[in-house]
């Protein structure tokens, strides 16, 4: 089964001159770490937003573990998916523990099981000593790690991460990537977007490169590099398909 499958996905925002998605079609197999790559404005965030049910597509279909993303299935899909937004989606005036307790409560967890779950995750991400510190006073790396914990409290089968390592130090990045490998090793699927192609090359079993709202290529990083003799790494493949022109 596929973790996600999008077919002929289209989206034009109200008032926009050009469509964000123009018939995007791609699939990622269940239980893999997959990368959704593309230059700025390629349509990555729109695709993720449609998969999560935050944005209605103008056309086409999106499925998560075979369940079509429709208003009727939205609640069921929310239970299987965890999204780590690029922004630090935490309340800066609340401590890490208070933030996680609040989001845990929203998921329906409470009391001792929730406390234990929070402390376990904080420990796994090296944040146990900062549990009662306001997240607004965290370093960039600490914020990123807390941001991930808030998205996995319900142990989703599919974890979608938007630039999870942007602006973090080497140690935090290493910890995050290690976590993704371990999470995937438990049989969960991971989809992540990044501009750090070296990182994607290291961690992803499969990548899809999209540009101007369409899929330009898809495959394992080594396979894509091998397809083009002049490409030494994923970055060369990326530039080969998307060009050198600067995007706004």
């Amino acid at each position: 089964m596929n973790s996600i499958a999008v077919k002929d996905l289209q989206k034009t925002y109200a008032g926009a001159l050009t469509p964000s998605l123009q018939g995007l079609s791609c699939t990622f197999a269940e239980g893999t770490i997959a990368g959704l790559l593309g230059p700025n404005g390629a349509g990555k965030t729109t695709t993720i937003s449609i998969l999560c049910g935050l944005v209605e597509p103008s056309g086409g279909t999106a499925e998560i573990f075979g369940i079509p993303q429709t208003p009727a299935n939205r609640e069921a899909i929310k239970r299987t998916i965890g999204v780590v937004p690029q922004q630090i989606a935490l309340f800066p005036q609340l401590t890490a523990y208070e933030n996680l307790r609040y989001f845990g409560n929203l998921y329906g967890f409470s009391g001792r099981p929730l406390r234990e779950k929070i402390m376990q995750h904080l420990e796994a991400f090296g944040l146990e000593k900062a549990a009662h510190k306001e997240t607004g006073r965290f370093s960039g790396g600490m914020k990123r790690r807390a941001n991930i914990i808030a998205s996995i409290l319900h142990e989703p089968k599919l974890l979608v991460l938007d630039e999870p390592t942007a602006g973090v130090d080497v140690q935090s990045r290493s910890m995050i990537l290690q976590f993704l490998r371990e999470y995937n090793a438990k049989g969960n699927s991971v989809i992540y977007t990044s501009h750090l192609l070296e990182e994607a090359e290291q961690i992803c079993e499969e990548v899809a490169i999209i540009d101007e709202g369409k899929l330009v290529t898809q495959g394992a990083p080594t396979e894509l590099i091998g397809r083009h003799g002049h490409c030494r790494n994923l970055e060369d493949v990326f530039l080969h398909y998307t060009g050198h022109a600067v995007r706004d």
Binding site: G53, Y107, H154
Partner: peptide, 18 residues
């Protein structure tokens, strides 16, 4: 702006209760 609204909306359950 900080994305916590998106996080709340991504959590199963009616946002009306929030």
């Amino acid at each position: 702006e900080d994305g916590s609204l998106v996080r709340m909306k991504l959590i199963p359950g009616n946002y009306l209760s929030v």
